[in-house]
Amino acid sequence: MLAPSPVPPEAVAVRDLRKRFGAAEVLRGVSLTAREGEVVAILGASGSGKSTFLRCLNLLEVPDAGEITVAGEAVRWRQRRGGRVPADRGQVDRLRARVGMVFQGFNLWSHRTVLENVIEAPVHVQGRERAECVAEAEALLAKVGIADKRHDYPAQLSGGQQQRAAIARALAMHPRVMLFDEPTSALDPERVGEVLAVMQALAEEGRTMLIVTHEVAFARDVAHRLVFLHEGRIEEDGPPAETIAAPRSDRLRQFLARCRIGVA
């Protein structure tokens, strides 16, 4: 490359991803590229394959076909009886360490305090200095607004606080990409805002984020791009405001109508 590219490099690239569970074909060829700093909101009805898609990106699910590239490194595969598997477990672990994941159910480690949750992977997976990790974890917890809870156990926190702790845990790995799998779906309605606010701040920092969500208003206001999945395929992919204001497909129109939010 001679001339510097005007577009930022690819953070995640996925080509023709396919996944079936038994008879059900959940992903039927999904291709998507997210560039660095891009915030992509992924919408879709339940069963559209959006969570499976996200879980394939860090190989929590192994896709049957298709290629995955994270930060320029493509996942290597090996054929095995009954399908393919990643060729190199070490590569998978390395890749996962570069991708932060935030789950619908928080999945904080219940036997460790909030601070211990945050420093666990930096210390034990990345092998970093404990003291340095603690200092950084405290800064991250302050950033998500729960510094005072650092010595509490997850069960002592509200859902919103747990999810913010889970976001801090994911950030502590210095991930290249953050994946959010319906991060507010398990929360009480009055707790949703505090988590969305943290996510918005991250987006404004220029982080690369892929967010599976039902929060259409958040997608419209914060995301750079909206992807609508339907029955395992990408049905629409465009700028959020325009796409929501004027959906091209009937399916997105029906989906938005069911979400019944103030889209105006």
Partner: peptide, 15 residues
């Protein structure tokens, strides 16, 4: 054991 906590460990790259 809550499977989600194991999954979270896989997701941060623990072997």
């Amino acid at each position: 054991v809550d499977r989600g906590q194991i999954e979270a460990a896989r997701a941060v790259g623990m072997h």
